[in-house]
Simulated scan of single mutants.
Amino acid sequence: MSNALRIARRFCGPPNSGNGGYVSGLLARRMAQPCQVTLHAPPPLDTDLQLQPHGDGLQLKLGEQLLASARPYQFQLEMPPAPTLQEAEQAQTQFDGIRHHDLPGCFVCGTNREPGDGLRIFTGCVCGHTDQVAALWQPGADLADEDGKVASEFLWAALDCPGFFAVKPVSGLALLGRYSARIEQPVAPGESLIVSAWAITHQGRKHDAGSALYRSNGELVACAEATWISIAAVTS
């Protein structure tokens, strides 16, 4: 049986399509088990989409067009040491998007988004290392689910764009291709969190990244792995 899914304009990545991490998180919530999401085409905003069972996973479609698919999946991730609060605070002052941002309206990392609208996660290089980035993030009360905790799709979103900035020195402009996140512990709105991401491998147009969310004491609350695909330009 099909289920309708609609991505509000607030949750864009490129101007006319959903942020990849947020969309992946919506599919993961429906899967209700560890999964990996593949993004096949830009999901349009403010449009009724169809979420359909497919084998042991799900497909997100617009009519016959496949937009995204989810399948059961688990990953192991080798993580560098968590940045300290001071390192993350310093790193975000080096955010590359302050000088030039290809997607300034992005829900997660867009510099044109106001506090309380976008997540405004501005990751910069940690201690001069170009392959690891970090920032601070304090999720707002509007991101809470019915249990009063930050909804899982927003944690998936928060782990998304930092991975791009970790691979960007090699990838150039890129879009999310495949993505999987794991939430270890619930997060309360208003918590002070450290966001970290790092490059793992680069193979042609494909670039793998890891990312993680930590409490201020370095305790892991969520992590993700992602594959980014280099592109020439964003057209939608």
Rank of each mutant, 00 (worst) to 15 (best):
L39Q: 13
L39K: 07
L39Y: 06
A41K: 11
P42R: 12
P42W: 10
P43R: 05
P43Q: 11
P43V: 13
P44Y: 10
P44T: 08
P44Q: 02
P44M: 04
P44R: 07
P44K: 06
L45F: 07
D46C: 11
D46S: 15
D46A: 10
D48F: 10
D48K: 11
D48T: 05
L49Y: 04
L49N: 11
Q50V: 06
Q52T: 14
Q52I: 12
Q52G: 06
P53R: 06
P53K: 03
P53E: 06
H54N: 12
H54P: 08
D56K: 02
D56E: 03
G57D: 04
G57C: 03
L58K: 13
L58D: 10
L58R: 03
L58C: 09
L60V: 06
L60W: 02
K61Q: 15
K61P: 12
K61Y: 07
E64R: 14
E64Y: 07
Q65M: 09
L66K: 13
L66F: 05
L66Y: 04
L67H: 03
A68Y: 11
A68S: 04
A70K: 08
A70C: 03
R71M: 13
P72S: 05
P72F: 13
Y73E: 14
Y73S: 07
Q74L: 15
Q74H: 14
F75M: 05
F75H: 03
Q76A: 14
E78Q: 15
E78T: 13
E78I: 08
M79Q: 13
M79A: 11
M79F: 05
P80Q: 10
P80S: 04
P80M: 01
P80L: 02
P80A: 01
P80C: 00
P81R: 02
P83E: 02
T84A: 01
Q86K: 12
Q86H: 12
E87V: 07
A88V: 08
A88F: 02
A88T: 01
